[in-house]
Structure formats: C-alpha cells, structure tokens
C-alpha cells in the first residue's frame, strides 16, 4: 500500500491516478496510522511553503512524516512536497521545513521569467535506484522557488534554467522531485514506477 499524504495542499487527484495506473494499491489519507503502516509514502503539494508547514504542524502530520522518514521506508516528496524536506524555505518570510535534508529553498532571482514553467531536460548527477533504467529527458516543472541542497551527494538530477536547478534529490530512503512526475509523460511515469517498485507495495 502506498499512502498519499493529504494535508490540505493541492491536487492529489493526478498523483493518486498515476499511482493507480501503475497498478499499485494506494490510499489518499491524513490518518497517521495508515501513513505509518504504508509500504511507501508520497508527500505531494502545491502552494506556499509556510502554509504547507503550518498545515503539517497543525494536523500533527509533520511528526508523522519525520517518523516515517526515520522508519527507512521509501518517502517521495513532489514539487512543494520535495521543498518541505529541506531545512528551511524563504517563501513570504523564513519558515522551518521538515529538516530531513540540509538545505534551503529560495526564490528565483534574475532577469528571466518566473515561474519556471514548462518542460525542461534532466541531467542525472549520480546513480540511484530511482533512476535505474531511465534515460534523461524532459519533465514538467512549475515553480517560483528552488531548493539548494547543502550536500552535493543529495542531488540526483538537475535541469538548466539560468542556473542548475535541483530537480531530483535522494538520500537513502528519501526522495524528492521538483517537477511533477504525474504530469511528465512517459518519463515521469517511469520515475514514479521506480519509486513504487522500491516500496514493494502490493500490486492490485
């Protein structure tokens, strides 16, 4: 079973449909017991960093996600969900994140269009079970803030948007994707399939 964590931020429908299409048992839930019992968990999210952390704390789910990460079972943050894995975010003031990966989330600054919106090409930085058998290509990004991991060993893939942009992060059982794999065609589905394979979640 894969738990898609519902903490009141954004569109869970597309993510859940994508996992369903991969043939895995899936539940969209805010129930701590259901999350902690799952073989794998996905933290999605669209919206602002501060609001998201307030929701996670208010519902007690911040502790649940941290406990889940410590359990060693695979956890995937998507888009804002990836950013929340870091130490802090600077969206409308500085907010403490889940602090599972050292690093900060900052706004794009420069003479170019923000949000970084559209299809951009991945460059893989290291090997990972998440990238196994996958060829880099275009995936769909929509974001105005980007993550700066402190440790280069956590950076699995980047995209080029006036600077290297953190696209995929990973450390042990923790993974994050800044783009939307559920909206990224075949390549996105291949990456999600690798994640669901890692969870060992039962096939339907």
């Amino acid at each position: 079973m894969i738990a898609i964590i519902d903490y009141g931020m954004g569109n869970l429908h597309s993510v859940s449909k994508a996992v369903e299409r991969l043939g895995r048992d899936m539940v969209v839930t805010s129930d701590p017991e259901a999350i902690l019992a799952a073989d794998g968990a996905i933290l999605p999210g669209v919206g602002a960093f501060g609001d998201a952390m307030a929701n996670l704390r208010g519902t007690g789910l911040a502790d649940v996600v941290q406990a889940y990460a410590a359990s060693g079972k695979p956890l995937l943050g998507i888009c804002l969900g990836m950013q929340l894995l870091f130490t802090e975010g600077e969206e409308h003031g500085v907010h403490r994140g889940l602090d599972l990966l050292p690093g900060r989330v900052v706004r794009f600054q420069g003479d170019y269009k923000v949000p970084h919106m559209g299809w951009n090409e991945l460059t893989f930085k290291q090997t990972s079970p998440l990238l196994e058998g996958v060829d880099p290509g275009h995936v769909y990004f929509v974001h105005s803030y980007h993550a700066l991991p402190e440790q280069s060993s956590d950076l699995l893939a980047v995209a080029d948007y006036h600077q290297p942009v953190t696209a995929i992060v990973g450390r042990g059982n923790l993974f994050g994707m800044q783009f939307h794999p559920e909206k990224s065609g075949d390549l996105g589905m291949a990456l999600l399939r690798n994640f669901t394979d890692l969870t060992g979640a039962k096939r339907k």
């Binding site: 597309s14 299409r21 939307h180 559920e182 990224s184 075949d186």
Partner: peptide, 11 residues
C-alpha cells in the same frame, strides 16, 4: 475534467 485527469500525463 475528472475523467481527463485520470487518462493523461500532461498538464
């Protein structure tokens, strides 16, 4: 919209 979201993998 609901049915489309379940079918396609682009925004």
């Amino acid at each position: 919209v609901r049915r489309t979201a379940g079918e396609i993998t682009i925004p």
